[in-house]
Write a protein that binds this DNA or RNA. Structure first.
Lengths: 218, 218
DNA sequence: GTTTCCCGGAATGTATACAAAATGTTCGAG
DNA sequence: CTCGAACATTTTGTATACATTCCGGGAAAC
């Protein structure tokens, strides 16, 4: 593994997991010392992170971890709804029916995964990730897939902000199952509707749990 | 101006203007010699270009200029329609009416610009660019604006492929005027429809002139 | 004749030394 | 006391030397 990849992965993980708070300045020398590599790979890693929007060049004084405000979350979901609704509709038309029937069946069993001992819900998130991947493949549009991938980075960061209690995850699993079912049925308008419904509920949940915690993060 | 910015701007320009053909390998040493800067800024420039999708890392043997196939153009416009239709709708709701009324009036006068002596149609493209900027501002969504900006890079490249004759540009100006008018009227569905209409005609024109030229570029 | 292994060369990946720019501070004048 | 300018420090930006990896050619074995 290249040193620049290592630096990138490490920094990215730290930002997404909120171990590096928004506003933190990431100096090149400081990070190269912390990560045990020289400035060059750190520099490349910071460049990649800035291109993704996880950090922002602060002109002369290093790069800073980008903040996510409540307005940002609204904007993020506005774009997400646009992209994912279209993607679901395309998947319903172009996707392979059996793939999504299979995912639908598995998602119906998801509550069992949530009751298992894993506190990180690893298997559950992996299953949802497989649905995302299946949609990405089905749409046959690399530009749209790329746009969604770049969005997901920010969304994972937002998700960590919300309280992912078992109740919400169970409901989300049912919503995902509906999306998979709609795509499998080959009905693009239905797939769109199921996606929009899921995203609205997801956004409401995030904003609610955020409101309670008083977590504005700037 | 930083050397890396210079290298980036120069390479980007060369790729967009098709002076660097798709498939061309861009070696770091070779480009640093050609551009008169050292490998480090060239490396950063190539990284940025790869992040944008204009070049692709070829693993071990430099980066290559990305090809644009006819399928890519279809995919590009599929995403473009999704994003710009949404943007137009949002602009109709959130934008300042007078800005788009002004642009509408100017776009109706665009044919005069096309008859002026400038073969590059500099003023015409500047006017269309101002419409794009106005929409970007009106939507109040930095993520959506960013997604559209990253798309436009590829679209400029595609546009160079098409024969931008005066007839098509005149029609396009009328279509842009319709979009501005629809946004000014505050009707999101109308703005969406005007945008979709324009994009479909634009795509048809590109595919037609491309068919005639037999220009597949891989 | 085909395949596989190894070696050579040229490319990228990394580290570090040096240059330049920007910021924060401090000193001085008003 | 406040404002401003100049300086010092700390940061990023660039160049280059060195390490490493990867591809391709060629020879030998099957």
């Amino acid at each position: 593994m290249r040193a620049s990849d290592k630096a990138y992965a490490s920094l990215r993980e730290d930002i997404i997991e909120w171990r590096l708070a928004p506003g933190t300045v990431l100096g090149e020398v400081e990070q190269s010392a912390r990560l045990g590599v020289s400035r060059t790979p750190v520099r490349e890693a910071l460049g990649r992170l800035t291109a993704e929007g996880l950090t922002t060049a602060a002109g002369g004084r290093g790069v800073v971890v980008t903040a996510i405000s409540l307005e940002d979350i609204d904007e993020l979901f506005e774009l997400r709804e646009t992209l994912e609704a279209k993607a679901a509709a395309l998947a319903a038309v172009r996707g392979e029916r059996r793939v999504f029937e299979q995912l639908h069946a598995e998602l119906l069993e998801a509550p069992a995964l949530l009751e298992a001992g894993d506190p990180a819900r690893h298997e559950y998130y992996a299953l949802v990730g497989r649905l995302d991947d299946a949609i990405d493949t089905a749409i046959s549009n690399s530009y749209l897939a790329q746009a969604m991938r770049s969005l997901r980075v920010h969304l994972v960061r937002v998700r960590r902000l919300a309280a992912d209690d078992a109740a919400r995850l169970g409901a989300a699993a049912a919503e995902h199952a509906s999306i998979a079912e709609a795509i499998a049925s080959g009905n693009p308008r239905l797939a769109e509707a199921a996606t929009i419904l899921h995203l609205h509920r997801s956004l409401s949940h995030i904003k609610n749990s955020n409101l309670k915690a008083g977590n504005t993060s700037h």
